[in-house]
């Protein structure tokens, strides 16, 4: 099962994504993509670490090349796609097509896991025109989001803490067994 969770800044998407693993009993891996290279990132990383403490995730730090991750029959939470893409583009490595490269990794992680949840960002709706590099980044991320949404059983947009759920299989998704509809039916329960 695969889910894409997206939304704007501080919309509650991380907690929602984590909650999808509440009823998952296998090994759980958290793929952390944020580079710990400045005080603000370090602070964010600390907040995220605290939030998922006690939830049973083993952290794998992988800032680029997620296709090199070798885990099997497990749950994977990848957070987040926006950082991963930025790292791939700005790491200095020469890559032709970052979307292609990331999708190869996504395909591999999908086939190697039972439950795969990807947290991404909504970057395409602020109506601001940016420089070429940023515009390119936005285009890549939108492209990735669309491709992943297509692969996913469900996609979820978090809006001020409220999950809005859609997707091709979401009505009969096995994710129902992972408690997603309890969350959906009662957003209050998750605070």
């Amino acid at each position: 099962m695969m889910a894409l969770v997206t939304g704007g800044s501080k919309c509650g998407k991380s907690s929602f994504a984590e909650s999808l693993f509440d009823n998952y009993n296998g090994a759980k891996f958290y793929v952390a993509t944020m580079l710990p290279n400045d005080p603000e990132s370090l602070k964010q990383i600390e907040i995220h670490r605290k939030n998922r403490m006690g939830k049973g995730f083993e952290t794998i730090e992988k800032f680029t090349d997620i296709d090199e991750i070798n885990v099997r029959r497990c749950g994977i939470l990848l957070e987040c796609l926006g950082n991963l893409l930025a790292n791939e583009i700005f790491s200095g490595n020469k890559i032709n097509d970052p979307v292609d490269k990331i999708m190869r990794g996504i395909d591999k992680l999908k086939s190697n896991s039972d439950l795969f949840v990807i947290v991404s960002n909504d970057v395409a709706r602020d109506g601001i025109l940016y420089d070429d590099t940023t515009e390119k980044y936005i285009r890549y991320l939108v492209d990735l989001n669309s491709k992943i949404a297509k692969l996913s059983d469900i996609f979820v947009e978090c809006v001020y803490g409220i999950p809005i759920i859609g997707g091709k299989n979401f009505e009969n998704s096995e994710l129902a067994g992972f408690g997603i509809f309890d969350v959906f039916a009662n957003p209050d329960a998750k605070g």
Partner: peptide, 12 residues
């Protein structure tokens, strides 16, 4: 307004 979507602003 929903203002949280988009590129992370440069200014702190």
């Amino acid at each position: 307004d929903e203002i949280g979507c988009g590129i992370i602003p440069i200014e702190r």
